[in-house]
C-alpha cells in the first residue's frame, strides 16, 4: 500500500515531460538524427524546380567568392567554414552534415528538410561527381571532427594531400 501510495503521489505531482517540437518545415522526408538526408536524386524534377536561377534574389551568395581570382585558399576555407556555420544556425539540432564530400554537397544544395540551398547546385566549384573543389580543381577534404567542428583541407597547388602546400582550416 505504501508503495502504491508513493507511486500515486508521484503520478499526480510529476512534471509533464517536454513534448517534441515539430520541425519548422516538414515538407520532405526529414533528416534522421544522424544528419544524413534521404537519398533523393540530385536532379529530380521536383527538386530541380526549386533551384534558384543565377539572377534569383533567393539564390545563396555565401560561396559566390569561392575560388575567386585574386583571392587566396585561406579566403576559400573561411567561406566554406561560414557555410557550415550557416548550416548549423538553420539546423541547430542536427549538427554538421556528414559523409563524403558529395554527400555533404548534396545536403548543402538543398537535399534537406527545409529545401535550403546554402550552396547553389550550379556553383562552378562543384565538379561532375558532385564534389566541391578547390581553386586547383581538387575536391576539398571535409573532415568531420564533431557535430559542430568541420576541418576543411585543400590539397594545394600540387593537388596531393599530405604535402607541404596543403591548406587547412581547423575550427
Amino acid at each position: 500500500m505504501i508503495a502504491v501510495a508513493a507511486v500515486a503521489i508521484w503520478w499526480i505531482m510529476r512534471v509533464p515531460p517536454p513534448q517534441p517540437q515539430p520541425r519548422a518545415v516538414p515538407a520532405v522526408p526529414g533528416p534522421t538524427a544522424s544528419g544524413l538526408l534521404p537519398l533523393v536524386g540530385p536532379a529530380s524534377a521536383a527538386s530541380m524546380a526549386a533551384v534558384p536561377k543565377a539572377d534569383d534574389p533567393g539564390r545563396s551568395v555565401l560561396l559566390d567568392d569561392l575560388n575567386r581570382s585574386g583571392g587566396t585558399i585561406q579566403d576559400d576555407l573561411r567561406l566554406l567554414s561560414e557555410v557550415f556555420a550557416a548550416w548549423r544556425t538553420n539546423f541547430p539540432r542536427d549538427g554538421n552534415p556528414v559523409g563524403e564530400n558529395a554527400e555533404i554537397v548534396r545536403t548543402l544544395t538543398g537535399a534537406n528538410a527545409l529545401n535550403l540551398a546554402l550552396v547553389p547546385r550550379d556553383h562552378p566549384a562543384i565538379n561532375a561527381a558532385g564534389e566541391l573543389t578547390d581553386r586547383w580543381g581538387t575536391p576539398f577534404r571535409l573532415h568531420q571532427l564533431s557535430g559542430t567542428r568541420m576541418e576543411i583541407r585543400s590539397a594545394g597547388p600540387d593537388r596531393r594531400f599530405g604535402t607541404a602546400d596543403d591548406a587547412l582550416l581547423t575550427p
Partner: peptide
C-alpha cells in the same frame, strides 16, 4: 541511424 555517423567525437 546513429547521430553524426562518420564524425570522430
Amino acid at each position: 541511424l546513429p547521430n553524426q555517423l562518420f564524425s570522430h567525437n
